[in-house]
Design a protein around this nucleic acid. Structure first.
Lengths: 248, 248
DNA sequence: TAGTGGTCTAGACCACTAT
DNA sequence: TAGTGGTCTAGACCACTAG
């Protein structure tokens, strides 16, 4: 046969579209610039809107685009480098940490995965401190910090305190304990409705879930579940924070 | 008004569907079990197939499901905990590391982000070592390790070696250097065509991209870009590897 | 109120896998 | 060859934002 078929596996349209758009973003657009709307773009490329959207979704996942309902699609700035593991181990809420306490509640039900780490039994009272991390006015991450009531006995009477003050009380008492170590896991998740609101995203948006285990007195003393916007954040670990400068 | 509208924001169908399916997975299915096909499932829930697929995609993103074309949709096992930052800093390829060298090439073009970290100029020769990480017969991650030729002068004449041997030669010479430190970043990406094949996924599949910077002699000596399957992997950091046991 | 992205439908065909 | 998930279409309506 004289026919040459270099691509035995034809590239899907949305994949090719993504490549074309990606190159266009590099060469013809600047950060913050607004793209034509989806209907126009689809028409221009001769595809259905759903196909165009598949390409846009990928680019948004990679942090290249930002889409907002009622507004439009804009070119996203490079991802923000976010230091996750400080050089020195510290309790959450220690001086200089980038989180802002939001409020705290006491509960006797925690997610199964958290209960397993804390080795708490069903019914054990646990403080749940909500915190949020913001940079340049934009929400980066939401966190739930789980501290068994038995770990911070001084916080028995915090019921009278209001939100932030209560969170402060729990965090403050933690500082008095000796922190022996910590470890973390990172995995992909999708934002729960509550997190999504806090992160200014729609429910289901992709997030990087960082689970931190704080060890003190030979056992897991607290667990933090931090939910970072996957589209805008690049998590940084390690001694040198200089790498946070890396772009694109 | 006597009307009570608790949900002013009606939940999208696919979101509700995802919740229902998620609970069904917990209670009525076992790991590895095969689900009804998409057309049947869509009919059963009274939605279009596209809507059903939106829910399945979310569940796959969260590592609850595994879908394979031509085969079906199965219940995924819990994510595998993968140690990313060993307790002691070592060069890639050191004894006991979980990676298998695949091959190596020499090139004078590297991704812009890598060139920035390595501080190489356009045209500088760089060894690119491909490695892969496998557990229980399943591919977890693919890696490209970039080492400037100037860093491993003993590897000038490796052109005659075949793939794996060449990779070994570069890795071996690295061990002789003193490693001063390393740091890492983690971000969300989508699999390039080449990675996708190595990871047994389709192009565009969500991946966790770990960029490791190796520091020696006061400067960045090597950069590794490791691409982990986001659906099956949970990355673990820190001194204690015990956390790798955490499930679900 | 006009315009945007988000959701949803009811089809169709294709690529792949196992039999 | 039959059955699966993957891609694609051409519509429709909804929720949200901004002028």
């Amino acid at each position: 046969m004289g026919t040459t078929q270099l691509e035995t596996v034809p590239e899907p349209k949305y994949w090719h579209l993504k490549t074309v758009l990606s190159e266009a973003l590099d060469s013809e657009f600047t950060v913050g610039e607004i793209l034509p709307n989806e209907r126009d773009l689809a028409a221009r490329f001769g595809v259905a809107r759903a196909t165009l959207r598949q390409a846009l979704e990928q680019l948004e996942l990679e942090g290249r685009l930002q889409r907002r309902r009622g507004v439009g699609t804009t070119v996203a700035p490079p991802r923000v480098g976010v230091a996750v593991a400080p050089a020195r181990h510290t309790w959450p809420g220690a001086a200089g940490d980038d989180w802002q306490p939001v409020d705290a509640v006491e509960s006797d039900t925690v997610p199964a995965a958290v209960a397993r780490l804390l080795e708490t039994a069903a019914g054990d009272r646990v403080h749940i401190v909500r915190r949020s991390r913001v940079t340049q006015g934009r929400p980066l991450a939401a966190e739930l910090l789980y501290v068994p009531a038995a770990v911070v006995p001084g916080c028995q009477e915090t019921g009278v305190l209001n939100g932030p003050a209560r969170a402060h009380a729990v965090l403050q008492e933690l500082q008095s304990l000796e922190l022996e170590g910590q470890d973390r896991t990172v995995e992909l998740g999708s934002a729960r409705a509550e997190d999504a609101k806090q992160l200014d995203r729609l429910p289901g948006a992709p997030v990087l879930v960082v689970t931190t285990r704080y060890v003190s007195g030979g056992r897991t003393t607290a667990v933090a579940v931090s939910t970072y916007r996957a589209d805008t954040c690049r998590l940084t670990f390690g001694e040198s924070d200089a790498v946070a400068l890396l772009a694109g």
